[in-house]
């Protein structure tokens, strides 16, 4: 289990204050704009940043108390960091072999081959897609209980993105107790793989919801100023004024459909939820 309880970090006038919890067997996504605090959250979770307050618990231990053996159970992809790009995958293979007890060399080599990654080419000469795949394959090559992935699909085209997500999906299916935390600013990536989602904005969690609920129960209400004034606002999460009236996000689409049959209520995707939740009214 991963539990972040009131993580606080202040830097350059930016304040991060996050709590989240990922139980065993769950895939959780963190979604937010660039600079919302995703990477800082991930880096704090991994102990790469010192925190100003709060508690971070992984595998039942405080993050500062994790031993190297515990860390063998955490597979990581960082958006901006990997092994030296002067190395090739043969080198990476040898390094991993000496780093992780449960490293699966056969798996690593065969997946690299399947994905068309050359073993003897410098990582620096890899395309963005190839680099991203190499990072993900490395993270899942040593049978970890926890995967922490920061923007594993950033900069990839649709096909490469789906290939990376497929690798991750397969990995999670192998062992139902595995945990995955993934960040992205591309919502469609998370839609298909995450059980629940945290929306982060300005260093805070603005929404935490099951993916199914967002896709099933959330809706976008479009109302004139007059209609909007009459609206029961109990299930409205956010609203904003537009040229033609108001737009509002609800988590009870059905309630409004039944009680306000004349209103326009549309299905909504994760992208639109973010857009509206982060819009200043």
């Amino acid at each position: 289990m991963i539990k972040i309880d009131g993580l606080k970090k202040t830097y350059d006038g930016f304040k991060l204050d996050i709590s989240l919890e990922i139980p065993e067997g769950q895939v959780t996504g963190i979604i937010g704009r660039n600079g919302a605090g995703k990477s800082t959250t991930i880096k704090s979770l991994l102990g790469l940043r010192k925190i100003d307050g709060g508690k971070i618990n992984i595998l039942g231990k405080n993050v500062d108390e994790l031993t190297n053996k515990d860390k063998e159970n955490i597979g990581v992809v960082l958006s901006d960091s990997f092994f030296s790009l002067e190395l090739n995958l043969n080198d990476v293979n040898r390094i991993l072999k000496k780093t992780y007890k449960d490293y699966d060399e056969k798996f690593f080599n065969s997946i690299c081959k399947d994905q068309g990654l050359p073993m003897d080419k410098k990582l620096r000469d890899f395309s963005t897609g190839m680099k991203a795949k190499a990072k993900v394959i490395t993270a899942i090559s040593h049978k970890t209980k926890i995967l922490v992935l920061d923007e594993p699909t950033a900069g990839l085209d649709v096909i490469a993105r789906n290939e990376v997500l497929d690798l991750l999906r397969k990995y999670m299916e192998e062992d139902p107790t595995r945990i995955m935390l993934i960040t992205s600013h591309i919502s469609s990536d998370l839609e298909g793989i995450c059980d629940d989602l945290y929306f982060i904005e300005g260093g805070k969690v603005v929404l935490h919801e099951d993916t199914d609920v967002i896709l099933g129960a959330y809706g976008l209400i479009k109302a004139s100023e007059e209609d909007f004034a009459k609206l029961d606002k109990e299930y409205i999460l956010a609203s904003s004024k537009t040229k033609f009236g108001y737009e509002a996000i609800t988590k009870e689409k059905k309630f409004y459909m039944e009680n306000y049959p004349n209103l326009v209520i549309e299905n909504i995707g994760i992208d639109e939820v973010i857009t509206h939740m982060t819009k200043k009214v």
Binding site: L46, L48, D80, S81, F82
Partner: peptide, 11 residues
């Protein structure tokens, strides 16, 4: 290439 961060995610 900011490689240190990754090294410290290893054991």
């Amino acid at each position: 290439d900011n490689g240190m961060a990754y090294l410290f995610t290893l054991p």
